[in-house]
Design a protein around this nucleic acid. Structure first.
Lengths: 185, 185
DNA sequence: AGGCCCATGTAAGTAGTTACATGATTAG
DNA sequence: CTAATCATGTAACTACTTACATGGGCCT
């Protein structure tokens, strides 16, 4: 499977100059229901892409700011990005250990599942909150960038999914809990 | 991140003896909304696990059947599985190129997005059908295995998610289509 | 007879994570 | 003053995919 890191970078740096660190934050807080990247991918890729001319360093006017490498996408980078957009997609990669455990569980693992359901719900709730925050932020802009409506659409999906996961987990948890109590009567 | 392949194998081979090929089919058709594996992981792992005594070969009584290696989980394997169940979960891994494109799109990529939305909807619809089939299969058993109710719960989540994705894509597609038509007027 | 699915595997290459190192800045 | 967060990077490792090889059985 081909590496997609450069396209994420290219896409994010079209509108806003960002550092590697900021890119990572963006992905983690706004895109994590369908994507992730690690620093070990990001930083070397940023350096390679700069050398190849797909992104360039933006110098900051404000010299009081501490040093960080802000990049933005070049024209050449934009071309590469748009080419990628038209290409067929590779198949998805997904591995959720929590969901795997839920699927493979039997009555011997009831306690473990109960614990994992709690964590699962809590994590999804936290993520839901982040998506909602970003959503509010975007819709409050009167002056919409032409890409904002695309992001908003995706956030709607993410929010609906997180909501589904939370509700499902809450429900399931209560159901299992009742079963356990029934047994101990 | 530690390799989880052995736990999937262990979990699936508790109830039903299966070949590597069947395991792969199972994962692809029933678990693909939260997990995937490739043959390159599966077959070497099966051989290693047999050597280590976590799974064992089941000999078939029926000699007309063509040759295939059917495995099931051993007591030792079950212990390992139950230990894993109680452990904390690693963080998820996820990469969906389609969703990435939806997120990063702007007006320049409208046509590409339209095409990807079609594929996305179609693929999710196909997967939805598979989950529904398996669901029907499970609920029609009068004699529920003690793990069936756990699988059913997961399928409910999978079905709801696929439904959400399909509806979202259909809606989004129509919306974008109308925009394009509006522009060409 | 040909194509498709069943079935098992391996080798090479690539993608990805983790742990470590380093240091500045900010908030309490 | 110290802990957390911002910030950048690299090396070693491991996980994973892909492409290839092989062949039987089934359907038409």
């Amino acid at each position: 499977m081909k590496k997609k890191t450069r396209y994420v970078i290219l896409g994010l740096l079209r509108d806003e100059a960002m550092s590697g660190y900021q890119i990572k934050q963006s992905i983690d807080t706004r895109m994590s229901f369908f994507w992730n990247e690690s620093y070990g991918q990001l930083y070397p890729e940023l350096n390679a892409m700069e050398k190849e001319g797909f992104i360039e360093v933006v110098t900051i006017d404000n010299p009081t700011q501490r040093e960080k490498n802000l990049y933005k996408t070049t024209r050449k980078g934009l071309e590469l990005f748009n080419q990628w957009m038209a290409l067929e997609n590779d198949k998805d990669t997904i591995r959720s250990e929590a969901l795997l455990k839920f699927f493979l569980a039997d009555d011997q693992n009831k306690d473990a599942i109960l614990k994992h359901l709690d964590n699962f719900q809590q994590q999804n709730k936290a993520q839901l909150k982040l998506y909602q925050q970003f959503y509010q932020q975007l819709v409050s802009f009167i002056d919409l960038h032409n890409n904002h409506k695309y992001i908003i659409k995706m956030l709607e999906l993410g929010i609906a999914q997180q909501q589904l996961y939370c509700d499902w987990a809450k429900n399931y948890r209560n159901e299992l809990q009742r079963q356990v109590q029934g047994e101990n009567k």
